[in-house]
């Protein structure tokens, strides 16, 4: 199991280097059913570890309940908006993100987030790299 954790971490670091993204993270349900950011690459503090995701809420939460990618750009806190929509972006000072589901069959097993601290539109090859990793993770998790 230790091996698997190391492999996942390496895979995240690898993709981050490949697409030159600031931040990558993977959210997974824990034993108790709580969904948390279990892995991160490029984080600037440990706030992400304490975040509990809610299906349907926020960017990652929406990927969980919809089962399809969600992307956002130019997110900065503004008067009138609700920060519960983008907690991971606030924690890491990110403004642009693409989140893709990790699927086992039709079931969403996790969410992979790729994000930038400076304005950026992720190209389709960047997104493909993330989807590729999500697919690999999906097949790993259907074996477990």
């Amino acid at each position: 199991m230790i091996r698997l954790e190391e492999q996942i971490q390496e895979a995240l670091d690898g993709i981050r280097a490949e697409v030159v993204a600031d931040f990558l993270a993977l959210a997974l349900p824990e034993g108790g059913g709580q969904i948390r950011w279990a892995y991160a690459s490029g984080n600037r503090n440990d706030r992400f570890k304490r975040i509990v995701l809610r299906p349907g809420k926020g960017i990652a939460g929406r990927v969980f309940s919809l089962g399809r990618p969600v992307s956002v750009e130019g997110i900065t806190p503004r008067a009138g908006d609700d920060p519960r929509e983008y907690p991971i972006l606030l924690a890491e000072g990110l403004c642009c993100a693409v989140a893709v589901p990790v699927l086992c069959g039709s079931r969403v097993r996790g969410v992979l987030l790729m994000a930038s601290r400076t304005p950026r539109t992720f190209s389709s090859s960047d997104v493909d790299a993330a989807i590729g990793l999500a697919e690999r993770l999906g097949s790993v998790y259907s074996e477990v």
Partner: peptide, 8 residues
């Protein structure tokens, strides 16, 4: 609040 934002 702590669980939502990860702020201790």
């Amino acid at each position: 609040f702590e669980q939502t934002f990860g702020i201790l």
